[in-house]
């Protein structure tokens, strides 16, 4: 039986990069055991993201209120859950995650049957590696994650992930609002899901700006550390 796969692309003002991303997704070749649906979650953008996305044969979900990345992502998981998708892959709308790399996630999922598969920049150091400061931050999260969950996740801030139905169900119930990536690993690990990492090659963002800049980098680290800690002690 074919596997129903939903690709979730949360977008906030991504009109610069969404066209090339959706074109690439159209041309993408995946094993024919997968039936792919693409869902663009427009997080109340104030540009033409929604209009542009509507021109493609994709599902466009327009949030009437800006929810932030976590809330947008969760909308995608709710859609996946309600429409009985077997697997969901989240992918950034800014072109950092080349669709061609999707096969690596699918392959890893096929081989390991893990509940969560994370695409990592750092297992094989190829492609876009982010700035030094950010890499320090990420290695700090690697250490923190190992401390809390005992597993090694080298790229815990990666938003290129595959969830199976069990993980989707959990994400529907609870998904952090802001900066969800590192915290959700703690949450999933505590819920007994198996998490695997597979090397992928990422690109530098094609347009738009990172939501985490300047002073917010420090805020990010503090906020995520606290969130991870509370996720860890929560029952």
């Amino acid at each position: 039986m074919a596997t129903q796969l939903l690709i979730i692309i949360p977008c906030f003002n991504e009109e610069d990069s969404i066209v090339s991303l959706l074109n690439e997704l159209n041309q993408m070749v995946v094993p024919n055991t997968f039936i792919i649906t693409v869902a663009v979650i427009n997080d109340c953008s104030n540009d033409n993201t929604s209009v542009i996305a509507e021109k493609f044969s994709v599902v466009v979900i327009n949030l009437p209120v800006n929810l932030g990345i976590g809330g947008a992502m969760q909308t995608g998981y709710k859609y996946a859950w309600e429409n009985n998708f077997d697997v969901a892959v989240q992918m950034d709308g800014d072109g950092q995650h080349p669709p061609a790399e999707l096969n690596k996630l699918l392959q890893c999922w096929h081989n390991t049957q893990a509940n969560v598969v994370i695409g990592s920049r750092f297992l094989v150091n190829q492609g876009f590696q982010s700035s030094l400061l950010r890499r320090w931050g990420i290695s700090y999260f690697h250490w923190l994650n190992k401390f809390f969950t005992g597993i090694h996740i080298y790229d815990s801030t990666s938003g290129f992930r595959l969830f199976d139905r069990k993980a989707i169900e959990l994400a529907v119930q609870y998904y952090p609002d802001e900066y969800p990536e590192p915290e959700s690993i703690v949450f999933f690990a505590k819920s007994g899901l198996s998490i695997h990492e597979t090397p992928v090659i990422m690109k530098e963002r094609q347009g738009g700006k990172s939501s985490i800049r300047h002073f917010y980098q420090l805020y990010y680290i503090i906020k995520v550390s606290i969130a991870m800690f509370f996720s860890f002690i929560r029952k």
């Binding site: 979650i41 979900i61 327009n62 009437p64 929810l67 969760q74 309600e82």
Partner: peptide, 17 residues
């Protein structure tokens, strides 16, 4: 309130779709 708004927004968006 924020939690409720998030939930309402999501449900509304999904329903509209």
């Amino acid at each position: 309130l924020q939690k409720s708004i998030t939930k309402l927004t999501q449900e509304l968006a999904l329903l509209k779709e």
